[in-house]
Design a protein around this nucleic acid. Sequence first.
DNA 1: ATGCCGTTTCGTAAACGA
Length: 260
Amino acid sequence: MKIATWNINGVKARIDGLTRWLGEAEPDVVCLQEIKSVDEAFPAEAIERLGYNVATHGQKGFNGVALLSKRPLEDITCRLPGDDDDAHSRWIEATVSTDTGAVRVASLYLPNGNPVDTDKFPYKLAWMDRMLAHAQELLATDEPIVLAGDYNVIPEPKDARFPDRWVDDALFQPESRSRHRALVNLGYTDAQRAVSRDEGIYTFWDYQAGAWQKNNGIRIDHLMLSPAAADRLSGVNVEKQTRGWEKPSDHVPVVVTLDV
DNA sequence: ATGCCGTTTCGTAAACGA
């Protein structure tokens, strides 16, 4: 089973690239972030025509997450527990069953947190604490778990082409990185790092200042696997070619292959 | 470097992003 995550930066602006990529890569499950659409305006038909079921958790203007799956999406839940006043649409999870088992998949869009000296940064950290609590609860189930999305965290210096430029950024703060490590310490495996410790693996290149042309990238889109899911991991691929397409997202898809 | 670029919105400038 191929499970992908992709921050598409506006699903309506990206529908041609999205359908092209679905046809070429043929993922079984796709976790989308930053759909920037309300549920009613999500271009579901174009995606359903390619054989996908669609579940969305959108909001007007920004944020918004979605799940696409060739097999039915079961037990769909939206929102991250722990703060009923949090109105941002940043979490959707569902179960996908196969002939040999089932996997619980979440599409998450972790808050950016910039600028660090504003309320946005403590919101990010509190959101990460809620995510850690929920991730721990999920481990009590027998199903393999995949927490996939835009984490807005650069885990290590080697996950940035120019780490020195990120030291004042919320994505690279010690508080952000330590919470990401806490997810690992709970037992979740960074799928990319399970297959390669290489530097130079990036998933985001800014639109500005020729970042793509200069390969000034960062690795912030992650698929975190529970022990049961990590046991089934057989491959990871960064779909870098999409960044060179016309009207690209600034993020590219990351795909894991699980023997499920 | 208050810059760059791109998407969205009861738009035509501002919010948000990373």
